[in-house]
Simulated scan of single mutants.
Amino acid sequence: MHGRIILIALGILIVLSVIFNEFLVSFSLIEFFFGVIFLVCGITSFKKRNVGTLGSLIFGTILMIDTFQLFPTSLDFGQLFLLMIASYIIDAGFSGLFHIRKPHIRINKSIISENLPPKFTGNTLELTTDVDWSSLTIDSYKIDSPVKVKAVIDNDIYSFKKEYDSSKVNIFNKLKVSNVKIPERAKITVYLNENTYYNYHADLNVCTAFFDLRRIKTREVRIKSTGSNITLIPSQNDNTSIDLNSEVSSINIKLPEDVSLVLNHIGDLNFKNFGRMYQREDGTYVTDNFSEAFYTCYLNISSEISRLNIEFI
């Protein structure tokens, strides 16, 4: 912008010098004019701390001093050109010493930490998480309430909402339709009480999810996943039934040694690390520790173009 203003002003001066036969335009006037331009450009940009602002201030000051003949001798065009180069060299040196950079742009983020629900009745909680483009973690923790939610959300990108009553908690984190930025993933962690039973429903849209259910009593888990990466460790405190509807997702099941897996699937599914499972007559797959395991995870998968990896930990 400043460069365009200088070009327009220079063009006007040239037109005036031709029309008025240099009556209005002398070298001193041009020097004064550009001295003002460089000073104004330097001062208006100084608060932004951009590289080049100090050079503009130095050279503008030199032009003003020479205009009023405060130097011992008057400077010619070649000397002024060299002084302009020197001004910006000095600016570059100071920029390197003091690491001048643009100010940090403040992001409108919310840091959320809340225990839910305030009043819990019964022994089973209905929990729902419906999230877009987020990093979601489910884990156990020593808490008094059934659910503790911690989240870092950019309010310009996401619409975060929670609903609850005495027996259910619903957590939503949806991308705003009006958002045009490439969003940074929201970070959401949900801690669960080890003494409460849970029916859990997760709706994941392009998310990275880590579900560590080892110390959690999960009676029913339903997951709908689109374009997501899921790592799941089944409960070691209860038998678990997991229904998973997967579209173009990666599913990694990590089994503790005392938990067996019964797998039933339909659709397009690519298996990996399937060595410790065998197929029964009914078409289901069972891990080789089925008869010795304390608890069993029943996994039903309906999938399209997804990958399943099963490993023991």
Rank of each mutant, 00 (worst) to 15 (best):
S249R: 03
E257I: 05
G283K: 13
V262P: 00
E292N: 12
R276C: 00
F274G: 07
M277C: 10
R276K: 14
Y278F: 12
A293D: 10
S250F: 06
L269N: 02
G283P: 10
S250K: 11
P256Y: 05
H265A: 02
R280S: 06
K272L: 03
N270P: 00
V286C: 02
D268V: 10
I266T: 14
I253L: 14
H265V: 01
S250W: 01
F271V: 00
L261F: 08
V259L: 09
H265L: 05
S246H: 02
V248Q: 14
Y278W: 04
N289R: 09
G275T: 07
Q279E: 15
Y278A: 03
N264Q: 06
D268I: 11
S291R: 14
S249F: 03
L263P: 03
K272N: 15
F294H: 11
P256H: 04
S246R: 01
N273V: 00
S249N: 02
K254S: 13
D288I: 07
F274Y: 12
D268T: 14
K272S: 15
M277H: 04
M277L: 15
T284E: 13
S249C: 04
V286Y: 12
L269W: 03
T287G: 08
M277G: 00
L255N: 07
G275Y: 05
N245K: 13
V286N: 08
E281T: 06
F290G: 00
R276V: 00
R280E: 11
E247Y: 07
N264T: 08
E257D: 13
D258M: 07
F271A: 01
V262T: 09
E247W: 00
E292H: 09
F271Y: 10
R280T: 09
M277R: 04
D258P: 01
T284S: 15
T287D: 02
E281N: 13
T284H: 12
V259Y: 08
N273W: 01
K272H: 13
T287A: 08
F290S: 01
E257N: 11
N252W: 00
N245W: 10
F294W: 01
H265F: 15
S260Y: 00
Y278T: 09
E292A: 07
F271L: 12
D268M: 09
T284Q: 14
Y285A: 01
S260G: 14
H265S: 10
L255C: 09
F294Y: 05
A293M: 04
D258L: 02
L255H: 06
S250L: 06
I253C: 03
